[in-house]
Design a protein around this nucleic acid. Structure first.
Lengths: 150, 150
DNA sequence: CCTTCTATGTTGCAATTGCAACAAAATAAC
DNA sequence: GTTATTTTGTTGCAATTGCAACATAGAAGG
């Protein structure tokens, strides 16, 4: 049933592509919306956790964050307790863009799930959530350099 | 219910990341497995159709194909009927790698869907398939330069 | 306390990615 | 049959992406 993972890949690339072109209007370049929404929803997050949540490389997240700071969407603040980490917060500008991102996502959602019953939407979400939980263990392990046996 | 699209994004990035590290062993660089499997399963395909199927930019597909040719995984052949297109076929080397890709995908599949009943797997596939069909219309439209209204 | 290990962050390459802009063949429209 | 449009392909930038390798702060183990 590898078709499932293919469908997921197709959907993800299509959505990402659409979002990227639509968010250029707000001066967000490729992929940045991913980070900005998560920071808005989890103010104080650090970039390491961001990378884990989004499932990208640490250095990729680091650069996306740097650019978001440069363009005034977010702030990095020192933590008095832990001098190693930098906590991330949306700026006013970031907070302004956030609802626009959500609006776009909601629209894509409506398009993707059009014709679905409430029940089907619930089911899809729960199944995907479980699959994600399953696969993220492997992702973390492989990312740390472990080899999967099969 | 925008969480659905987020879960899809997370799963897709995690799986892609895992596959990319695992396929380095066969000298396939980032993303190439995507194209190679489709060419093996649809010999004679042209790169334009590949891009559409995979949901990437035409030029991205063009470059992935070029590299697969360079590294001896596929062949490009002229069509006697249509001098514009180049049909793509796996080489012996490509055909050898194909089952290894499938094996990896099957493993990821088992991991992602572990704990799922046959019924749940069926359901998930059909829901995803419908969602993909829904969203690919928008993708094609946006790719052509159209603007979505919402 | 000291050493070791983990967490978090960075910079330097080398590659993929994608938009614009172009080309040329094929198809559609008249 | 000629012109316009669509299909298919390319190359030139400019950007994101990610691995390797490094740095340093904090935590754990003794």
């Amino acid at each position: 049933m590898k078709e499932i993972l293919r469908e997921i890949g197709m959907i993800a690339r299509a959505l990402d592509s659409i979002s990227n072109t639509e968010f250029k209007e707000y001066d967000l370049t490729k992929g940045q919306y991913l980070y900005l929404v998560r920071i808005c929803e989890n103010p104080g997050f650090i970039q390491e956790k961001l990378a884990e949540m989004i499932k990208v490389d640490r250095t990729t997240a680091a650069r996306a964050v740097k650019k978001l700071v440069m363009n005034g969407f977010i702030d990095r603040r020192d933590d008095p307790k832990n001098r190693k980490i930098k906590k991330l917060f949306p700026t006013e500008k970031g907070k302004t863009v956030y609802p626009l991102i959500i609006r776009e996502h909601d629209h894509s959602d409506r398009v993707a799930l059009s014709g679905f019953s409430e029940n089907e939407i619930e089911t899809l979400f729960h199944l995907l959530h479980r699959a994600r939980k399953n696969i993220e263990k492997d992702w973390e392990s492989v990312k740390k350099g472990n080899k999967r046996i099969y």
